[in-house]
Design a protein around this nucleic acid. Structure first.
Lengths: 122, 122
DNA sequence: CATATGCTCAACCATAAGGTTGAATATCTA
DNA sequence: TAGATATTCAACCTTATGGTTGAGCATATG
């Protein structure tokens, strides 16, 4: 149901690997931006920024509207939900870890350094 | 607080771009696996699988324990929490979108297919 | 109209990614 | 000890990524 025309997880995660692109998404979170505005904070050519935007588009994370000579970009957050959904599966594991750590710290408090607990890893 | 873990996020997301590696993580979610076991489901050399595991290790997602001649791999979920935290920021946006969609569908129900709504983007 | 502006495109370059193969290493087992 | 097993390493190949530059194309603006 979620995986209709949602771009593959591959391209979504791939789009997120680059700090420049993540920063662009942050910028878009506060409003629409054209290519020049997205490129401005970075020391790179407009062509390079244009490529980054194209990667974001391929992942479905950005929609472009050509308006005269400027290309207005808008954040399209839906694919991020797909990535989040994938991650959500592992939530149990890191929660478990944190719970274990929590228990560990409590036990340490009580034992006052007497026994050293075994931990989760053999 | 926002992007202070940037170098880490790069390698974490990068590790997740590959479907093979995501499948390996799934496998590890059900228990420890050695390299051969991780490689088994895939039509690729052991050397290739070994490289994938190394990528997962670099991202901190897997810990390796050499046990005799086998290398036992264990899921290390903590870095996924960092990725999740990054994504969480955008949760508001896709929730917002879903709310809009919800409202749209309700309106459609009432209008009984009279107008076809154009969506939120002009 | 002339020219500045916003952006893409194409060509190119260096490096990274993902795969292969063959050889090397270390460890179990008969 | 000999051989099978588990895995890495090194070299190599192909394609992808991220960047550059220079040219080209619409579209605003004086």
């Amino acid at each position: 149901m979620v995986e209709h025309m949602t771009p593959a997880l591959d391209v979504i995660f791939q789009a997120l690997t680059d700090g420049t692109r993540r920063a662009m998404l942050r910028s878009l979170a506060t409003g629409d931006r054209n290519i020049g505005e997205l490129a401005a904070p970075f020391d790179m050519s407009l062509a390079a920024a244009s490529k980054h935007v194209k990667v974001l588009e391929r992942a479905g994370l950005v929609r472009r509207m050509v308006k005269g000579r400027t290309h207005v970009c808008r954040l399209e957050p839906a694919p991020l939900a797909a990535a989040d959904e994938w991650l959500r599966f592992y939530e149990q594991f890191w929660n478990q870890k944190l719970d274990a750590l929590d228990a560990l710290l409590k036990a340490e408090d009580q034992a006052a350094g007497k026994h050293q607990p075994k931990g989760t890893l053999r």
